[in-house]
Amino acid sequence: MSVSPQNTFVGKAAVLDGMPEHPAIKAVVAWNPDALTDARFDRGELTLTVAPESIVEACSIVQTAGYNFFEDVTAVDWFPSEPRFQLSYHILSHAYKERIRLRVMLDGNNPTIASITPVWAGANYYEREVFDLFGVRFEGHPNLRRIMMPDDWTGHPLRKDYPVEGYR
């Protein structure tokens, strides 16, 4: 909040040290500091990396801490390195007028994570899009079907090993 966007903190210890008053960090530390595996404050944006199994809990923790508006979730494919998939949840606070990013790293082999639709129902289409284009499965999602591509499509087009021109 009071931290200047010119500052850069890399790593969990530096962020916890540099901005201990940040409401999201405070809430996450009060809940379970071990669930926070990494953190970064760069270009005025705060990224909190959490363990994949605690994403739903982390979402409801930051929601209670005032980050009330789910804005976006998407994935980045870091093929061929492992863990391969990065999920980025962008969450906005109407009260603090600020955005945080929750980040989760997933294994390339059968990537699966719990759906956050119980916390924010609006994640429904976004998770479907990630499933469709990256092949990440969301457990507990009410309707995990392809959304952009035809139902009988083979492959997940936004993966890096999928050619730009598609399979011919």
Binding site: R43, E45, T47, D72, V76, H90, R101
Partner: peptide
């Protein structure tokens, strides 16, 4: 690095999430 930039378009909040790996083409 990675950035998310939101603006208010005519329809609502638009956002671009750009990930760079240091090359001349966006990674995502």
């Amino acid at each position: 690095g990675e950035v998310y930039q939101g603006i208010e378009s005519g329809h609502g909040q638009m956002g671009y999430y750009v990930v760079s790996d240091g090359t001349a083409k966006p990674y995502r």
